[in-house]
Amino acid sequence: MITLKRVKNLSVYEEKFNKSWVYKELHEARNVKPSFSWGLILGIIFTGIDQILFRGKLPFTLRHKHADHETLKMADKMPKIDYPKPDNIITFDKTSSVYLTGTNHTDNQPVHLKLKDPELPIKYTLDKYDEPAQRYCPAGVYEVQYENDLAKFVINSQNCIHCKTCDIKEPSQNITWVTPEGGGGPKYGNM
């Protein structure tokens, strides 16, 4: 082992980073994503001007205004979307898709998706947002099941593919992803 004191001030990392080509790249790219908050058409027009004419050198920086968990509108105010049924040739359901990820978690271990308030999904999120976890989770981990007309929030944590979407999008930040037992999760090949 080499002699290295406990490093306290590592600011040299950011100094080097700010002088590198990564910083320059990110600086030129900075206005593209926020411009799409004005919609596709305006976003494209602005990006054309910003990227083709000015090559990212416009003298101002657009801001991101909201965190992603703050953007959902109330379910009863927004249109329902009618998705076509999978044909099992070109389009598929979540169950057969998750199967292909090879994901697995040994059962009988603590659930690695922690709810700050276990009642919240049924008490609040179901009513207000039609519990969007049923839809944003790409692995079908979250389900609302009904038993004798009573709604129940079910977490099929063994199906989780560690994408972190729930941790980001849950409108009340009620879900926290923590590490499961070692080796759990998807088994991707050449992804």
Partner: peptide, 16 residues
């Protein structure tokens, strides 16, 4: 993930 419609299903958009 800044989408606004809680009925949106990213998985189903991809399939569609």
């Amino acid at each position: 993930l800044d989408y606004q419609n809680p009925h949106l299903s990213p998985f189903d958009e991809f399939q569609r």
